[in-house]
Design a protein around this nucleic acid. Sequence first.
DNA 1: TGTCCACTGGAACGTACGGCTT
DNA 2: AAGCCGTACGTTCCAGTGGACA
Length: 415
Amino acid sequence: MGNENVLDDVFDNFVNRVNLFKDREVLRHDYIPDKLPHRENQIRLLGERVAPVLKDARCSNIFIYGKTGTGKTAVTKYVLSHLEAKAKQYGAQVKFCYVNCHVTGSVYRVFAHLSQSVGMSIPFTGLSVEEVFDRFRVSLDTSRVLFIIVLDEIDALIKEKGDAFMYELTRINETLVKSKVSIIGISNDLRLKEFLDPRVFSSLSEEELVFRPYDASELRNILLERSKLSFQEGTLTDSALSICSALAAAEHGDARRALDLLRVAGEVAERQEAKSITEVHVQQAEKHIEHDRVVDALNNLTLHSKLVLLSVYHLNKSSATTGEIYDVYNELCGEFGVGILTQRRLGSLVTELDAMGLVNAKVVSKGRYGRTKKIRLEISRTLVRDVFDADGRFNRIMDYKVCASKKSVLNNKSS
DNA sequence: TGTCCACTGGAACGTACGGCTT
DNA sequence: AAGCCGTACGTTCCAGTGGACA
């Protein structure tokens, strides 16, 4: 019953407190505003490129480059939804399908998604990729449309699964009779060209568009526009706005990050029942976002990745080698009562942890004493402790004392 | 100058699983 | 039910390597 009272207070406070937000949805990154400041040029260019579909002609394939949070996705969705509306007006059969390749995860699922958008439902497993592609092709052709496929974060999929599927896709028009396809590829990586078959590349980038990062003053304008819609008037201080844009500008002009910061700063301020959002709230928001990201990443690790991370934690050195970590990992597995993975596999897991920013792993050569990775924890020890303490399974090994194996002792001497 | 360490990291393959088609 | 599929996760094999040391 104590719990009930607490919750009652929480809810009452929430409802009665001063409201800083007018509409917090506006600050989410999937929100597409009516106005995209500093992207007028790109909007116009992309508009010109896709306009031919209004006259029943296929538009060129387009390749869009730019780092995260430079407005590629927003501009593309903005232009294409306007195009669709305009097409209705002119009676042109135009349709577009947006797929985020990174989120979707595999070639199979990308084709399944495309199929669904032309009214063909596909089971989530069981078919071959060729079969799914074929079904997509057939149902697309029967639907008689000018179909624009937007493949966002296409670099992620190509790097992981190769570009064979892109070859199929770029040649699809040769087998279509009643429909036509144009492809818009969006990549965060400017070097994607290196990973692509030249035939695919030339076909895909009939046109190219590059999105430069926003600078601090541009980010400031973007935030200002959005804040007018999202916050009550006079609740956002100038200094908060400036620091948000400065922080995001320092991180390659990422508008998405700037919007996140602003939204979380608003939430922090509201929780503290402040009357306005200040610089301090933004700084707290930054810590908050990072904290949440790490906790989330830690909780979602697989058991063995957790054990590897705990090995780094237990070794508690400024930099440990792969071999040392493997020894500790073996001990922990024994203590935990699970089978051990090979050192090769552990190497891959360390690489993954590095990519997530949970550890820092650098390949170094120690000359006569071989080549290895130097690995250290990249997050605070207390945070690791907190997260794993919350999971009862790890109680026994959280206070485990590492026995230094002979091998590790030898390594220590040499380094 | 060549040797040799302690790995790295690519590639091919194996296994378990859920789920399809026929 | 048989045969095939994609996905996730793992193993096995092995060529390659930066640089301290003899």
